[in-house]
Design a protein around this nucleic acid. Structure first.
Lengths: 234, 234
DNA sequence: GCAAAAGTGTTAATCTTACACCCATGT
DNA sequence: ACATGGGTGTAAGATTAACACTTTTGC
């Protein structure tokens, strides 16, 4: 008896693979996004996410980190795959799919000169310009993903300085969820998670009285995870 | 003043893009996965997910649906992107990235003859063979995603026949979360969601007494969604 | 009549929400 | 002394978790 070999693996065609980065930052109570003005054709002068083709000898996540470094000067940043955009006509001209990745950076640590040289700018999340191709959709999707993830994983801290105050943390969550939170309930909740280390220092930049600085306690977080605990905020 | 143009978009290299499908089914109280024995080199005879190269004139999700149809005969199936696997050496020989997509099918509706002809088999999720390349990782990731999504979205119903009993629904959730549930609490919870329509029919296959059949009420679900409701099970 | 699965309610414990005042400090 | 933001507790309501017996019917 002869079996028909399915042709699943028969047609082989190559295409371009790009990656685009949705770079979030948090500054002054506002959630922001880094966008840049394209310096080259096609679509020169239009606003877009920051991206690059993925090279043949390069992992996709490495390509994302390369782009991020090129534009912000930062290494070792929180970055996670969002989704791959693969409509056949998403990019006019040639077939190109894009693996979108989103990054959370500490906005005070990035290289402002580099950003400027690349014609990149920070936009408030509620006040974005029109973006090329499907980049607008990517941003929408990234925001949804950020909201889903920040609730159950301690990724919000990636947007804050290493030392932060509770009012700062609260205003970050308010910016992410676009919703005011009650400070008594918020503090009760986050403190009960046992992953913040209160320092003896105060940050006086926000008020006369000053607010105590805290650090996220990675070690305790990992330890708690192992004993079946789950993080949840907001 | 002259600006240096960044080389982000300068290097352009094409690569193969494949898609692999993680196909879940639910049968007899067990969560199952459809795998197939490769009929062609390379890796002939080894177990793998079902996949295909994505064609130049084909959307990535369409490629997934094509594969699914080819192997199960089914159209209009729940399918969602999981993640793109893009390590540079994940596939020995040539550079190929794979966009993994997972599908939930009603196992009673698929074309068993086709599955057989393709040397495909259903495996219990807890008893999988070793898979080629990074397919084992894909399956792990898909399971996590399934668990995360089934809790907050009514996708579990995609694995059940259109008419199902509450004990069946419960055993599905028990299979997904690998955890026994209390039937009183479970019924209270799902019934309170107001998205099940109880029919006058009983299914007597599971017991002498028979259990009432129910249908998922899509219309009411969409209506409720609009008025800011959220689904949650288990 | 008995085995096997379907169906049903209550209570205690926990978590969530709403809400308002005093504190510390720089000016 | 006053303006500004930091910090704290309690009570009512809602949700979850634990728990056991009766019903139906085919054999």
């Amino acid at each position: 008896m002869s079996r028909k070999i399915p042709d699943l693996y028969q047609v082989k065609e190559k295409m371009y693979v790009a990656t685009d980065c949705i770079i979030f930052g948090f500054d002054n109570g506002r959630l922001k996004l880094l966008l840049f003005k394209r310096l080259v054709e096609p679509l020169k002068g239009r606003w877009s996410l920051i991206g690059s083709f993925v090279r043949l000898d390069e992992d996709i996540d490495v390509a994302g980190r390369r782009v991020l470094k090129e534009i912000t000067g930062l290494d070792n940043v929180f970055m996670q795959q969002l989704k791959t955009y693969g409509k056949k006509d998403r990019d006019p001209g040639y077939r190109c799919i894009s693996v979108a990745q989103y990054a959370l950076i500490r906005i005070d640590e990035h290289d402002k000169k580099l950003v400027e040289d690349n014609q990149a700018f920070w936009f408030e999340i509620n006040d974005l310009p029109e973006l090329i191709l499907d980049h607008g959709q990517m941003v929408q999707d990234a925001l949804i993903q950020l909201r889903n993830n920040a609730r159950y994983k301690p990724i919000g801290f990636e947007l804050l300085p290493e030392k932060f105050t509770l009012p700062q943390l609260q205003s970050l969550y308010e910016a992410i969820y676009q919703k005011e939170l009650d400070s008594r309930n918020f503090r009760k909740k986050v403190l009960s998670l046992n992953v913040l280390r209160k320092l003896d220092e105060k940050d006086k930049s926000g008020s006369k009285r000053g607010a105590f600085l805290h650090k996220f306690d990675h070690e305790n977080y990992t330890k708690l995870l192992e004993s079946g605990y789950n993080f949840e905020i907001a």
